[in-house]
Structure formats: structure tokens, C-alpha cells
Nucleic acid binder design. Sequence first.
RNA 1: GCGGGUAUAGCUUAGUGGUAAAGCCCUAGCCUUCCAAGCUAGUUAUGUGGGUUCGAUUCCCACUACCCGCUCCA
Length: 527
Amino acid sequence: MSDAVSEKNTALMEKIVSLSKRRGFIFQSAEIYGGLNGCWDYGPLGAELKRNLKEYWWRKNVQEREDILGLDGSILTHQDVLKASGHVGGFSDPMCDCLLSKARLRADQIEPQSGTAYHYTGASHEESGWSVDRPYSVLLQEGQDPNKAKKTARLYYAQFLTDKQISPKKLELAGETTEAVENSTHYNPENGSLLTEPREFNLMFKTHMGASADDGDESSVAYLRPETAQSIFVQFKNVAETNRVKLPFGIAQIGKSFRNEINPRNYTFRSREFEQMEIEFFCRGEDGLALTEEWLERRLTFYEEIGIPREHLHVLDVPDGERAHYSKKTYDIEYAFPFGIQELEGVAYRTDYDLSKHKEHSGKPLEFFDDETKEKLIPHVVEPSAGCDRTVLALICEAYDEETVTNEKGKQEVRTVMRFSPRMAPIKVGVFPLLKNKPELVEKAREIQAMLSPFMNVFYDETAAIGRRYRRQDEVGTPFCVTVDFDTLGESGDEAKDTVTLRHRDSMEQERIAIADLRNFLLDRIA
RNA sequence: GCGGGUAUAGCUUAGUGGUAAAGCCCUAGCCUUCCAAGCUAGUUAUGUGGGUUCGAUUCCCACUACCCGCUCCA
């Protein structure tokens, strides 16, 4: 991305963040206490938007399908579940940081080095009287100039100088000793600098169950789930046995997951608490790859249905070596956010890895008896796993639009419109009396509000000029507004009686519609 | 985790070592017969904690949060 484009996108993102706050989509968590890093709250409109997304996903994937069943698993997770899945232990790679370059290296990928280690205890600068006491070492390969060790060490100690005008070359090193070293992974192969001790980066939130449990009691350890998938695998047998299913079939879940991200970024995109919408679609091994393709297509269609067009999505065929080790095929569905192209959903063929692992660790039979082939097997699984909060953010970014319109005085002004698809829009219709000081108009508008509100989210507004009310609704993405005027009351004859103005958000066009037809007109467009 | 930047009202911005300003928004009233009209009145702010100072929103330090670039993302 060029600097100019990147600046423009940062500005766009700032506008989106600002509107989200101003209109009550997204607030910072615990804002009055200074905020909580990586946590966000949805305000009234954000909550509606997110509900609309989740409900549509659930309807399409669970309620309208005979072959997918719902589940709502607990968030607190038995430690053995996550040991079996590999989340405890295996995947928490210890990392080392280079003390000089600050590069972070995976401890298990550092090539062992041999040579001579030069140890120092500190450094000082005679003229200014500055000094630092801190052990540091440099490893030199055989044949390297010993002065290189001094040079590297001076650069290291120079980081602590308060007066940055002092040249590292002027530093006196203290307490030099040397030592022969064989196959050590404590040094950065790039520059010979000492590394920090390997540190675990386990991104799971750990807790202890029971009021009397203390931190030392390993048996009381539980975790907040890092993904919703595991409870589906763990309950696979119960669901299969209580529901007369046959392959292929799926189990779907929407719910919160937690990852203690080192570095939450990009607004709500990477947060520590997030919601997932996942399906584990169980199948015979030979169908896995074909079903992965099928699910990819189905998921892309879903995004189109909620207002994210195909051309704004990227499909990444995750190459060998970058996929999880158990996955034979993974597609990432990515969206072009203002801050970059980022993943919304992964569609992964996970083979029979998960169920096999749980069978192994629990010692319980997790085979499925296939009535058609009279065969017992561990089903394979295709997993479309979507980030709910990420998709909400994508909906907001996709909807945001500014257009220049000419007002009645002939002046150009900017109209901010959230072009949500009517299906996702937090408010479906605004209902206004043309004037608030005419009780007959107010009464009629209130009637319409009462008539529609059992079926959809209706917003009634009588303050300010009618144009302002329209613009307010534009900014929160309300697709339709209806206005009760004097024609509605029959002032210009029976033909217009009991009709209202229906105003369209995107075109700003208006049409006349009978109150009796309103409900079905709107329901047809928001379903 | 590293480096850089930022923090004044709901939003956008101004300003000052000595009473913190404006526009928009919002609320109430009047007015108003379809696209941010007008008039009147009103609410709301220096992120948190220290330090320097007679006095700090302003200077210094720390913390927190957000943004940008790395790193990381099982």
C-alpha cells in the first residue's frame, strides 16, 4: 500500500470508528476507567446489527437445514479437553527475543551455535560518568575478529544511554571473560547477540474452579475456551446418539471465545474476547475435499446475502506449510478492510484429527456407525469457522459511504450513509409525523409504529425538521422511512387517505404507499 | 513484546503556567406541509496517578488506552 493510500485508509477508519461511537454501534470497554485493552462493547445499534448477523447465520445454517444441529457449549473448559486438542502444551511455542535487534525467534527453530562466548558485566562512559551494570554476552564463531564482540556489546549497552549524543564507540566495557561454547541456542545466529530465556506464549485465559482453589492446585485448572470447536467435538457422541443422524451432518455453534492476544489491533478486528460462528460438518473421509469446496461456495454466497459483495472478498488457498498440520485443505475468506486484507472466516478440512485425539485422550469410543455401509468409522470434518465480530466490522466498513448532495439552497454538502443491506440494518424503518405539533399526525404515526413493531425494529422520531430526521436515519443505515402527512389524514381527498410517504435511504426517492400494505412491503425486503 | 505518535465536551477542532473557546451533535420550547431551515434557552471536557510550582490542561515522570510500523496470531 502506498503512503497516500494508507493515509487515506487510516482517515477512513477513523471516521468509521468515530461514527460507530457517535451513533452507538461500538464503545470501548470500561471507557470511564481508562479502557480495557483489546475489549469492546456493542452499543444499542451495534447489538442489533450483531444479533441480525447471528440470527441470519443460525437460520440459514441450522433452522433451514435438516442436516445441521445446534449446540451451545460452556465457555469454561475442562483442561483435559484442551490437552487433547493440543492447545495446552503443544502449540504454545516458547519464544526468545534478541537483546540487540529485538527480533523474536521461536526457541525450537534456533540453530545451535558453537564458538567463543564473550561475557561482559556492564559498560561505562568516562567523560559523562554514566554507567550500566547488566550482564551481556556475544558469541563469535571460530575465526571471527574478537573486536566484533566488543562492537556488538557496545551497541547493546548504548541502548541504555540517556544521552543519545554519545557514540557507542566511546563506551568502556567491564568484566570481559571468555568461554568456549558448544551447540548453544542462547545466541542469535544473525548477529551473535545473547537472547532472552525462552518464554511461553500461551494465549489461553486460565482460571481455577471452586472458591477454595488456589493457584498451586493443578487439578482445579480450567480455561476459557480459545475456540468453540472443541465443545462440538467433545459432544459429538451425545448429539449423534440423541438425534438419529446420518453422514454427512453438521453441528453448529455461535459463542464467545477468548485469546490472550499479545497485541490486540485494528479496532474490534483482533480482540481478546470474540464471538465465533462455527460448523463442524462431519463426513466420510473420501468426501472431505469436495465438501470443503462446497462449503467455501456456500459461505461466499452467505456474505453476498448480508451485503458483502464477492468482489470485496478474497479467497486464499492456504498453501502447504502454512496450514495447521492436521488440515489437508484450508481456505481463508478475507475482506478488504481499510487497514488491510484480513481473514473473516476459515474453511478447513480437518480430517479425523479432532475426534481421533479425543478418542485417544478420553479413552471413549467416538466412532460413528454408518447404517448405509454398515461400517464403524471416525468421521472426518469440514469446518467453516467465521468470526462474528470481524464480520460485524466488515458490515460497518462495507456500509460506510459519503456522498455529495446539493441542498435546497444549492449548497453542496456531504451525506453520510450506512448502506447496510435491509436484512442486516439495525433499524428497519423510521416512522415520523411530518409535524409534531399536530396531534392528528402524531397519533397516526404512533399507530403505524405500534402496528409494525411486533415484526421489526421500528424507530419513532418527531423532533426536528423532516429532512434532518431522514439524515439521522441515513447515518445509522435505516433503509426505509415513512412519514405521516396531511394527505394521510385525507385532506387532499380519499385517494391519498391512509397512505404515507415511503422514503428510500439509498436513492432518497419517495413513493406513496397505503398503510395497509406497509407491513408486507417491509417484511419482503428485510427477510 | 519492540519502536514511533496521540490523548481538551457525544463528535471535530482551538487555546493557555492564572475564569478553557468554537462548530456540529444532543435536550427543552416556539415555529415549520417532505431532505441536516430559523429563533430562544440548556447539558457536557483537559485519560489516570505522581512531581516541579503560590498556582499545571499547559513543563517533567510513570501508568492506561488508542493509532502507525515491526513482531505475533496455535
